[in-house]
Computed example of a mutant assay.
Amino acid sequence: MRSIAFFNNKGGVGKTTLLCNVAASLARKSFKRVLVVDADPQCNATSYVIGENAIEKLYSKESRMTVDAYLDSVSRGKGYKEDLETVRSGGRFGFDIIPGDPKLALREDFLASDWKDATAGDERGLKSNFVFKGLLQQCKNYDYVFFDVGPSLGALNRSVLLSCDYFLMPMTADVFSVMAIKNIGESLKSWRRKLDRGLEDYADEYGHDYLLDGQKVGLKIQYMGYVSQQYKSKTQQGVEQPVKAYERILKKINPAVSLSLKQWAAEKLDLKNPQIGKVKNLHSLVPLSQSANCPVFELTGDDGVVGGHFASVKAADDIFAQVASEIERITE
């Protein structure tokens, strides 16, 4: 099993659409067992894949089985929740999901407070901040677990990134996405330094390393590249090239990655060209996909696709399959 966070400190980059379509491509085309964990308090992935009727039924209950249940168990001192409960996304996506919950926004203070304890070697603090590692221990029957997260560098996302094997960055060609690369690199270094100190203090206090599932923990996440979103291109002499406005920004991304994320790069990632996919602007296909609760590449005439949009649906199939293929290659 490999766990991957789709993460960017910059919002509005099409992260959830990318994640759900790549997860569906792996499940439907490559026959992989995929679980999506919606760890974004906005719950966009949940809304996208399970449908309006299921959402009303789920969130009408005060006590509901969502990702927040795992944090609630830890915050009450009950340890990691052991019974993994998922929702089937439906045949058109083909993967399972642990639904999100707006209550997650209320967990930031709890995790931030326990982070201070974790960096001082406190066992409870470490246990709280590795809550998603505890969740992942129950996901060994999956090939991939994808985490959808918000665009912050706060305590909730830190807890996700502490637990995942990899993170993938959806990127738009704007200066703020480039700046986000530096923010992420600096945050990862700071978190590792503080966590390592806490783990050393724990080992000094108890005479052994802090273990989960018999394994030493730490910030071990690897950077697996970026995907250009809303990519705009033109064809010159049969060769696809980015338009000039995009090209200027794209030229800044690779040096920024080499400067800030080199030490986190996955072994199979080409740092000279860490772009593992390009998603063109899919325009009206995305809202059609959201309304139909199905991947973009599964849209049909019954969902409102007409005329030339059928070619765009086929192109989307190829686009998301390419990203899925790169994920498989890097994580082999």
Results as ranks from 00 to 15, higher is better:
residue 4 I to V: 12
residue 6 F to W: 04
residue 7 F to D: 03
residue 7 F to A: 00
residue 8 N to R: 00
residue 11 G to Q: 14
residue 14 G to I: 07
residue 14 G to D: 05
residue 17 T to G: 15
residue 33 R to Y: 14
residue 34 V to H: 02
residue 35 L to F: 02
residue 42 Q to I: 09
residue 43 C to F: 06
residue 50 I to P: 00
residue 50 I to Y: 02
residue 56 E to P: 05
residue 62 E to M: 04
residue 65 M to R: 14
residue 66 T to S: 10
residue 70 Y to M: 13
residue 70 Y to R: 08
residue 77 G to H: 05
residue 79 G to T: 13
residue 80 Y to D: 08
residue 80 Y to W: 14
residue 82 E to L: 08
residue 83 D to T: 06
residue 90 G to Y: 02
residue 94 G to K: 01
residue 95 F to N: 09
residue 98 I to G: 05
residue 104 L to R: 03
residue 106 L to S: 08
residue 107 R to D: 13
residue 109 D to F: 10
residue 113 S to M: 14
residue 120 A to E: 13
residue 125 G to F: 12
residue 127 K to L: 15
residue 130 F to P: 01
residue 131 V to Q: 06
residue 134 G to V: 04
residue 144 Y to M: 00
residue 148 D to I: 10
residue 154 G to D: 14
residue 161 L to I: 09
residue 167 F to N: 03
residue 174 D to K: 00
residue 181 I to L: 15
residue 185 G to K: 06
residue 186 E to V: 11
residue 189 K to M: 07
residue 189 K to S: 14
residue 190 S to L: 14
residue 191 W to T: 08
residue 192 R to D: 10
residue 194 K to F: 12
residue 198 G to K: 00
residue 198 G to R: 00
residue 207 G to W: 15
residue 208 H to L: 04
residue 209 D to Y: 06
residue 210 Y to F: 14
residue 213 D to T: 01
residue 216 K to D: 05
residue 219 L to N: 01
residue 220 K to P: 02
residue 223 Y to S: 00
residue 225 G to S: 05
residue 230 Q to I: 14
residue 231 Y to C: 04
residue 237 Q to K: 11
residue 238 G to K: 04
residue 248 R to G: 02
residue 248 R to W: 06
residue 253 I to C: 03
residue 254 N to F: 11
residue 259 L to C: 11
residue 263 Q to D: 11
residue 266 A to W: 05
residue 266 A to G: 12
residue 269 L to D: 01
residue 272 K to L: 09
residue 276 I to V: 09
residue 278 K to W: 03
residue 280 K to P: 03
residue 282 L to H: 00
residue 283 H to W: 15
residue 287 P to K: 01
residue 297 F to K: 02
residue 302 D to G: 06
residue 305 V to N: 02
residue 314 K to H: 11
residue 314 K to W: 13
residue 318 D to E: 11
residue 319 I to A: 07
residue 320 F to G: 08
residue 326 E to A: 12
